[in-house]
């Protein structure tokens, strides 16, 4: 015979446990922090802080200056030996696509989080490696640590030391829409057509 109170206790424990799992995985949709960020940005576009940045030509600008045009943003550091290379290639792809679609006015910004090492000269060298020309593709860095912290919070950027003096960071490609809101974040290994199609999606 079943023990007294067995069914209610079993239901209670199961419901609480499944509920907690569903909450942590956003309804069994994500298991990683990166996945959770991408889902959250897609569901609730974020407004961005007005942070002064300097590009490879020494020009001062802010992400708010782009209102009216969509912008792809990624975060890099110029000494990066790993993930930033495919990320740079992806942005090159977008540039090539832009050449054949002159009606689309998409801009690219790569923001360095390594304020200590990435001065203007380092940014310029990084840009030259991929043929990046401002203002079409800016390689930039925040002027102050506080600005970087604000961007870090808004974009959900996670940077950890790699143990050999460099960094490991999430390589998401972020999309800011024409109204200046952060609307999407893509995995670094997403094919360029995936986020280009999102671009045409937000313009319509």
């Amino acid at each position: 015979m079943i023990g007294r109170g067995f069914i209610p206790l079993l239901v209670l424990v199961t419901a609480a446990g499944i509920g907690a799992l569903a909450w942590e995985t956003e309804g069994f949709n994500v298991v990683t922090v990166n996945g959770a960020r991408q889902l959250d940005i897609a569901r609730r576009p974020r407004s961005l802080p007005d942070v002064p940045l300097m590009d490879q030509d020494g020009q001062l600008f802010s992400l708010a200056d782009y209102k009216g045009d969509p912008v792809f943003v990624d975060f890099i550091y110029t000494r990066c030996p790993t993930i930033c290379r495919p990320m740079g290639d992806q942005f090159q792809h977008v540039l090539q696509w832009q050449d054949s679609h002159p009606e689309q006015k998409v801009k690219l910004v790569s923001i360095s989080f390594d304020l200590e090492n990435d001065g203007r000269e380092a940014l310029r060298r990084y840009g030259d490696r991929y043929g990046a020309r401002a203002p079409q593709w800016r390689i930039a860095a925040p002027l102050e640590q506080s600005g970087l912290d604000a961007l870090r919070r808004a974009f959900g950027l996670i940077v950890i030391p790699d143990g050999t003096g460099g960094f490991i960071h999430n390589g998401d490609v972020y999309l800011i829409d024409a109204r200046g809101r952060l609307t999407r974040a893509f995995d670094p290994d997403a094919a360029p057509p995936v986020f280009i199609s999102a671009l045409t999606g937000i313009r319509s």
Binding site: G3, G5, F6, L9
Partner: peptide, 8 residues
């Protein structure tokens, strides 16, 4: 009693 066979 409720933790029948230790299942819950």
């Amino acid at each position: 009693d409720a933790d029948w066979l230790g299942i819950p």
